[in-house]
C-alpha cells in the first residue's frame, strides 16, 4: 500500500529556520499538510486537539523537551501509535538509548540530508 502523503505531519523545533527547512524538504517529497510547534508543550496541545500521522521533533527545547514530548505521546492512549522521529544534534549513545527506551520510532542526527529524512519517514510509515 502506498504511503498516505495527505496525512497531517507535526514538526516540532524551537529554531524557525529548522522548521522551515524540514517543511520544505517534506514538501519536496509531497507531504503538504505540515503543521509546526516550537516546543513540546505546544506540540502536545496540537496533538491532543488534532489528527496527525507523524511527528518529527527536535530534542533540545524548553519548557518541554522532545524526549518529554515523546514520553507524553507514548503515555497517551490516543496518541501512542503515532510514529515519532527525533531529529536532533544530540548524538551521544545515552541520548539514543533514552529515546529508544521512550519509544522513538527513528532517530536522525543533525546535520542531516534530505535522503536520510525521506528514508526514515518511509521506514517508520512501513515502506522501507
Amino acid at each position: 500500500m502506498p504511503i498516505d502523503r495527505s496525512m497531517n505531519v507535526l514538526i516540532v523545533d524551537d529554531y524557525k529556520t529548522m522548521l522551515r527547512i524540514i517543511r520544505n524538504l517534506l514538501k519536496q517529497i509531497e507531504f503538504n499538510n505540515v503543521e509546526e510547534a516550537s516546543d513540546g508543550t505546544e506540540a502536545l496541545s496540537k496533538l491532543r486537539s488534532g489528527h496527525y500521522g507523524l511527528v518529527i521533533s527536535d530534542w533540545n527545547m524548553a519548557p518541554m523537551t522532545g524526549l518529554q514530548l515523546l514520553q507524553e505521546v507514548r503515555a497517551d492512549v490516543r496518541l501512542r501509535q503515532i510514529p515519532f522521529i527525533m531529529i536532533t544534534a544530540e548524538s551521544k549513545t545515552e541520548n539514543v538509548v533514552a529515546a529508544k527506551q521512550a519509544g522513538v520510532s527513528n532517530y536522525i542526527v543533525k546535520p542531516f540530508n534530505a535522503e536520510t529524512l525521506k528514508g526514515k519517514i518511509e521506514k517508520v510509515l512501513g515502506h522501507a
Binding site: 533540545n60 524548553a62 544534534a89 548524538s91 551521544k92 541520548n95 527513528n106
Partner: peptide, 28 residues
C-alpha cells in the same frame, strides 16, 4: 538545565554519525 541529557552538538571527533546511530538503534 532542564534535562541532564541535553549535551548539544558534539565536536566531529566525538560525535556519532547517522550510520553509528542506525547501528545502535538496531542493536537496541
Amino acid at each position: 538545565i532542564a534535562d541532564e541529557l541535553l549535551n548539544g552538538p558534539q565536536l566531529p571527533s566525538n560525535a556519532m554519525d547517522q550510520s553509528d546511530i542506525d547501528k545502535l538503534l538496531a542493536s537496541l
